[in-house]
Nucleic acid binder design. Structure first.
Lengths: 257, 257
DNA sequence: ATCAATTGTGTTGTTACTACACGCTATCGT
DNA sequence: ACGATAGCGTGTAGTAACAACACAATTGAT
């Protein structure tokens, strides 16, 4: 395979193993230092960033395709994943990528396959970033890393709009179901949780009302105190009560707005 | 074209004018006599019912494909349409339809095309049923009519699940945005509107609180009284104040639950 | 004239949310 | 040693939204 050219092989053998014109893209949210972050992949040939995505195998449900993509990019297996919208505008095609293939007949077919119009099913994921091992595929992409949601490079295709919409959906879900179990390690503090909520909502919340609300929800378990350097008073550590958390997920809660 | 066989022509010429493996299906909600109703199409060859659906042209956004499908089945142009979920399980294929094609090579290709696995983008529509002219295509389907949501025949493929999910989404939207403008004629009464809400939510509401709530929303305009036979007291007729209704759509409201 | 059925409106108690004030703990500066 | 300071935890009062409830108005049937 030539250095500057792609092979049809990057698709895992035959392009026909995948459904044409269909892709999945994932907005992977993490949370660190009071900031929402998203996982992005860097395209080798054009020096630009996009959401981690992939194609759908013919023998695979689309949800499973999203999980597979995420497994490849994060090395994580059971992530919280939610389909939120399918993007099907006419602008969704990639003409640049076509030039990245050799000019053999087989390669031309692959080039045509991939550069044609795509409909993309958008998923968003919530993960504990400390467990993620960002991984580029080394073929189409040569880098994969976290970016601050509020300070990331402009993305390829319509991926900026996909991020925007994912955040909007996440925000609207926040008022009706608990969020946090998937974004934090086992234990966390209430100030941390509040900063997460503030990052998602994009505005500050009253600490006292927030804590009262959280306590009253009955999905938290106090497990000790956080001992850390430079901290004045030690905040309590909490862990989510899984059965109650999941019950709240199913039945819904109300969280102000 | 043989009587009992389909032609590739039903796809509007070349099958290749459409994206393979991709479909749109619409759950069209109407409201009549206190009941939610959905529009279903009857498949000629198997004597069973399904949601109205269709394929996506290569030169057409998926939202536009949904509108086109709806235009064909209802003769209506600007319906309220919302994408709510994309269904991509492995069971979504149609093996029966394959036998409905002639055995010419071209027709076999079409048979393979249509009988392969499909991913379907689900939309739901809200329409004033009095304006709809249900229309079957006469090729794949020979009937198109309204059914009570609570009393319709079992549907083909996974369409029962698609209806179920559409209703769930509609229900959850009900608490955050006004609904009704698209389901009623120009004018309607508050008791009618309440019955619509009750049909969607699946439970009865308090008439007094409902009316107070609706009045306070400030999206209604009183335009007279309804004179009807057999009615004791004449209810007032209302019309939605469009600008205010649309503002409520954008900004969201809270409607109990 | 009375009754029955349906519609319109007001009142009250309760709950949820918003705004706000204070005490506790540990570190830091002096 | 000591107070100042920064961050954390809890409580209280006012307000707005919601749920439960009662009564008056209109019209056709008896």
């Amino acid at each position: 395979m030539a250095e500057r050219h792609l092979s049809i092989e990057f698709l895992g053998g035959e392009a026909s193993a995948y459904l044409p014109h269909l892709a999945v893209d994932c907005v992977v949210f993490g949370f660190h230092a009071g900031q929402l972050r998203i996982l992005l992949t860097h395209w080798k040939e054009r020096g630009r960033w996009s959401l981690p995505g992939g194609f759908v195998r013919r023998d695979e449900p689309v949800d499973e395709a999203a999980h597979r993509v995420l497994r490849l990019r994060t090395q994580l297996d059971h992530v919280y994943l939610e389909q939120y919208h399918t993007f099907g505008g006419l602008d969704r095609r990639d003409e640049v990528i076509e030039r990245m293939f050799d000019d053999t007949r087989r390669q031309r077919a692959a080039a045509a396959w991939i550069s044609d119009r795509f409909v993309s099913i958008g998923y968003y994921a919530l993960v504990d970033w400390t467990e993620v091992t960002p991984t580029a595929d080394g073929v189409l992409t040569d880098d994969c890393r976290w970016w601050d949601l509020s300070d990331h490079p402009p993305l390829l295709f319509d991926h900026d709009a996909m991020v925007e919409r994912a955040l909007g959906v996440l925000r609207s879900h926040l008022g009706h179901q608990p969020i946090g179990l998937n974004l934090f390690p086992e234990t966390f503090t209430l100030p941390q949780l509040q900063r997460l909520y503030e990052a998602i909502l994009g505005r500050s919340l009253d600490r006292r009302n927030f804590q009262k609300k959280m306590r009253d929800l009955g999905i938290l378990e106090r497990v000790g105190e956080l001992r850390a350097a430079g901290v004045r008073r030690a905040p309590y550590l909490y862990r989510f009560d899984r059965p109650r958390y999941e019950a709240a997920l199913r039945e819904g809660i109300s969280m102000g707005r």
